[in-house]
């Protein structure tokens, strides 16, 4: 039986900051997007209040994936938490800018920068 590949890996926890890496290169498939959302929601439900999502692997995102991120942001903020995004490639960053979602999300060049920002506050 083929083992199902994980779509998200929790790379590390630094203090109370969780760093989760989105693993697929293309976040396009609706079922994948639902699974990613469920995995990250589990982290939030488990108490993660400071979450960095690392997109270093990702070279394509659909508008549904953007919607998933909005839902996650809302979910973590409902628990007085905060979400940051890191390592967004330039072509994907352009998508955020075109949709003005760069004004909605806290986007950092690197994961270390995002974590440092969390630890400062």
């Amino acid at each position: 039986m083929d083992e199902k590949k994980p779509l998200v890996s929790v790379d590390r926890v630094v203090g109370k900051v969780h760093v989760a890496k989105v693993l697929p290169r293309q976040v396009l498939d609706e079922l994948q997007i639902i699974e990613i959302q469920q995995d990250l929601q589990s982290l939030i439900d488990g108490g993660a209040k400071r979450l960095v999502l690392d997109f270093a692997n990702v070279d394509h995102l659909s508008s549904s994936a953007l919607g998933m991120l909005i839902n996650l942001k809302r979910a973590i903020e409902a628990r007085q938490g905060s979400l940051k995004l890191s390592y967004i490639r330039s072509q994907i960053l352009k998508v955020f800018k075109i949709t003005r979602l760069d004004e909605v999300f806290s986007i950092h060049k690197t994961t270390d920068e995002a974590v440092a920002e969390f630890l400062k506050s």
């Binding site: 508008s63 919607g67 839902n71 075109i98 949709t99 004004e103």
Partner: peptide, 21 residues
């Protein structure tokens, strides 16, 4: 328009705008 203030944080409605862009 998904970019106006009242629609900015809605989870859907961006597809056509992105195709146009």
């Amino acid at each position: 328009d998904p970019r106006v203030r009242e629609n900015l944080e809605k989870p859907s409605g961006r597809g056509l705008m992105l195709i146009k862009a």
